[in-house]
Design a binder for these strands. Structure first.
Length: 491
RNA sequence: GGUCUCUUGGCCGAGUGGCUAGGCAACGGUCUGCAAAACCGUGUACGGCGGUUCGAAUCCGCCAGAGACCUCCA
């Protein structure tokens, strides 16, 4: 663990040396998806960002517990007063059990993540499986005096909390500013202040997702699950909390307040946030209606896509940008990424066949150092990848005889190059899909046999026989017919 | 309206006071009967106008444009 990892902490707005609470161990929590639709390109960004962090921490020798939740309850649809949550609404539309909807999209998400070669987290807890913990958290917050019950719902008292604690540090917001900006929404008379948010919500009569609690039959508030589950699995204070930059306010700010109110101390030491994917300069988001699902990327079935893009192309595309920058999606950029990745992977193959020389003319140790330096500087994967392409040039130059490498250098190059590409950046060799392979094969055999007909017409019996004999050797049965040929593949 | 961020060569994207990533495309070369592929090589760009400085894409100010958050959102 001689590498010094620096990460950007959203809370301090500075790059800080990462030092875990318990030496050698890291606890990290990342906000996962709300499973009410297929995962889109935007979901891939935090998943890949924090997969990179997870992989790198493990590579450095840390023992990491990585928790990424599945939100399957509690998020309210646009109007807070309706009390109808996203999952239930979708269930109504699709005439499915809420848990059926949740399962379907959870499966889809996990499958997409697997395609992207994202390692499964250590624990993937579901909000619906932690209702008891969330009720306990509500009780703790009530006991600390920072929440109040109102008509069966329980609200977090933001103004009281802010008077006695720091509130808004993560997002840089002040309570006064927030108050002056608040829109008046209907049906908020249960709350003392518009800034207050529900930590327990009484279910309306028609609401299907509901659980008993001391206050009402209802469901937990939409920020509470992360507090309850991170505390349960990582402790009251833990190292890293990640998520999309759009979650900073109000979600993460609410989490900070809830944890402090419930446990009396700050919960998270390093806050990390990935930036957004844009499409034609606009944020890609489900609610904006411009989200392209990962399934659509993998199959090319979206009007905006010129072709299908493989999971590894998408992974490479994202890692070629820093996680804290916005990344603009275009077909051109994705196709550039596809070609670049192919060149990188090809060099990995070439690496296996390099000729060893007595002396070495290349500096492998320096290259390796630069790659680590890039990763240590707030996971600068684009720089690391740039250096790996220097490695590609070195490998190709050795292969061409322009440079030389000795046995030790070659071993070092192989081990570090592969560990960066496969273990840390998480790329994998993709097999070409064999879809249409049969059709292509068939076309090729037809092509050969048509050539044979030409040869026969020219009385070039040598060529004609050669084609038939070679095909036979390969396992084909070729028969001449009156007006052409027939063939089939034996076995 | 409030808060914040961004503007880099044909495209995507790093960097951030002097050493001027990388990928794709383009161009040149090697190879090849020709072509393709592959490989090697080549690119002084940082929105505009001022200022600070020996020196600025990098710091400061103004202007223009774009975006994010303020509401569910990755």
């Amino acid at each position: 663990m001689e590498q010094k990892l620096i990460i950007y902490n959203t809370l301090s707005r500075k790059k800080e040396l990462f030092e875990p609470l318990n030496p050698g161990y890291v606890g990290m929590y990342v906000c996962g998806p709300t499973v009410y639709g297929n995962a889109h390109l935007g979901h891939a960004r935090p998943a890949i960002t924090f997969d990179l962090l997870f992989r790198y921490l493990v590579h450095l020798g840390f023992k990491v517990r990585y928790v990424r939740n599945i939100t399957d309850v509690g998020h309210l649809v646009a109007d807070a007063d309706e009390g109808e949550d996203k999952i239930a609404k979708k269930a109504e539309l699709e005439k499915l059990e809420p848990m059926e909807v949740v399962q379907k999209y959870t499966n889809n998400y996990q499958w997409n993540m697997q395609m992207l070669n994202i390692l499964p987290p250590s624990i993937e807890p579901r909000a619906s499986g932690h209702i008891i913990e969330q009720i306990e958290t509500v009780k703790k917050i009530l006991n600390s005096g920072y929440a109040y019950e109102s008509k069966g719902s329980v609200y977090f008292d933001v103004e009281k909390f802010a008077r006695e604690n720091e509130y808004g540090a993560l997002s840089g917001r002040k309570v006064d500013d927030l108050l002056s900006n608040t829109r008046e929404l209907e049906g908020q008379e249960e709350k003392r202040s518009p800034l207050d948010f529900a930590i327990w919500k009484k279910a309306q009569p028609g609401h299907i997702m509901r659980w008993p609690s001391p206050w009402s039959d209802g469901f937990p508030g939409w920020h509470l699950e992360c507090t309850a589950m991170s505390t349960k699995y990582l402790g009251e204070t833990f190292d890293i909390h990640g998520g999309g930059i759009d979650l900073i306010f109000p979600h993460h700010e609410a989490e900070i307040a809830q944890s402090k109110a419930a446990n009396g101390k700050p919960s998270v030491r390093y806050w990390m946030h990935n930036n957004m994917i844009t499409l034609n300069g606009q944020k890609m988001g489900k609610s904006l209606g411009n989200a392209i699902s990962l399934n659509e990327f993998f199959t090319g079935s979206h009007p905006l896509l010129e072709k299908a893009y493989s999971p590894m192309t998408i992974r490479f595309f994202m890692l070629q940008a820093h996680y804290r920058s916005t990344l603009d999606f275009t077909n051109e950029a994705l196709q550039a990424a596809e070609k670049g990745l192919a060149r990188l992977m090809k060099a990995v193959g070439t690496l296996e066949t390099l000729k060893i020389s007595e002396k070495s003319t290349v500096d492998i140790a320096g290259l390796k150092e630069k790659c680590y330096a890039a990763m240590n500087d707030d996971l600068n994967s684009p720089i690391a990848i740039a250096h790996l392409f220097d490695g590609v040039r070195i490998i190709n130059s050795i292969n061409d005889g322009a440079e030389k490498i000795n046995e030790a250098g070659c071993q070092e190059l192989k081990s570090f190059f592969k560990s960066f590409i496969f273990d840390i950046l998480g790329f994998k060799q993709e097999e070409r899909k064999d879809e249409g392979g049969q059709e292509i094969l068939s076309n090729i055999v037809d092509l050969l046999l048509n050539l044979r007909i030409e040869a026969k017409a020219n009385k070039d019996w040598g060529t004609a026989d050669k084609i038939r004999d070679e095909l036979t050797k390969l396992g084909f049965e070729v028969k001449d017919t009156k007006d052409g040929f027939e063939w089939k593949l034996k076995k």
